[in-house]
């Protein structure tokens, strides 16, 4: 049987890419190896750790468990798409200021999941943040500063929204 390829078109961080891919190509491999967007990390590779989390049509997904063909037509956002005009996103700033990381391996996934959480719930309680990042594992920090980093970003995003309205 000849190897099937499928033409897919994805918009990643605002840029549209069309590619011929094998159906079994995972989204995380497409991002890292075809587009050289290596900010999205592969952690457990078994849908547990959340390191590979990206936004697909605004929803956080574990890109090690999504086929590229399932993302055909979708809009994808990765950690590389968070900063704007050379300025860190409030979540990136929050992880920096509050020291929300040690080794940093889980951080891109944490930030992408937190971005979805804050888009849906701009003023989450600590419980809501902890429940919200329950699909992202960090083995260094004990999560305390990660929660603070997300709270920092939530505050800043609310201030920005208030100033802009």
């Amino acid at each position: 049987m000849a190897k099937q390829t499928v033409t897919v078109t994805l918009t990643v961080n605002g840029e549209t890419h069309t590619a011929e891919v094998e159906p079994r190509l995972l989204l995380v491999h497409f991002l890292r190896e075809h587009l050289n967007l290596t900010g999205t990390h592969i952690g457990c590779d078994t849908t547990h750790c959340g390191a590979c989390t990206v936004l697909m049509n605004g929803r956080a997904v574990k890109s090690c468990t999504v086929l590229t063909v399932q993302a055909d037509g979708a809009t994808i956002k990765t950690i590389e798409g968070m900063a704007e005009n050379g300025k860190m996103h409030p979540l990136q700033e929050g992880f920096h200021v509050e020291h929300g990381l040690q080794c940093g391996y889980c951080t891109p996934g944490m930030i992408m999941r937190a971005a979805e959480l804050l888009a849906k719930n701009p003023d989450p309680t600590e419980d809501e943040i902890r429940w919200g990042i329950s699909g992202n594992l960090c083995r260094c920090t004990g999560y305390v500063n990660i929660v603070k980093a997300i709270q920092y970003a939530a505050r800043k995003l609310r201030e920005q929204a208030a100033a802009g309205s």
């Binding site: 849908t47 959340g50 929803r59 956080a60 997904v61 574990k62 468990t65 999504v66 329950s134 699909g135």
Partner: peptide, 9 residues
């Protein structure tokens, strides 16, 4: 069920 990312899919 599972976690937020899994519930998204």
């Amino acid at each position: 069920i599972a976690d937020p990312q899994v519930r998204n899919m």
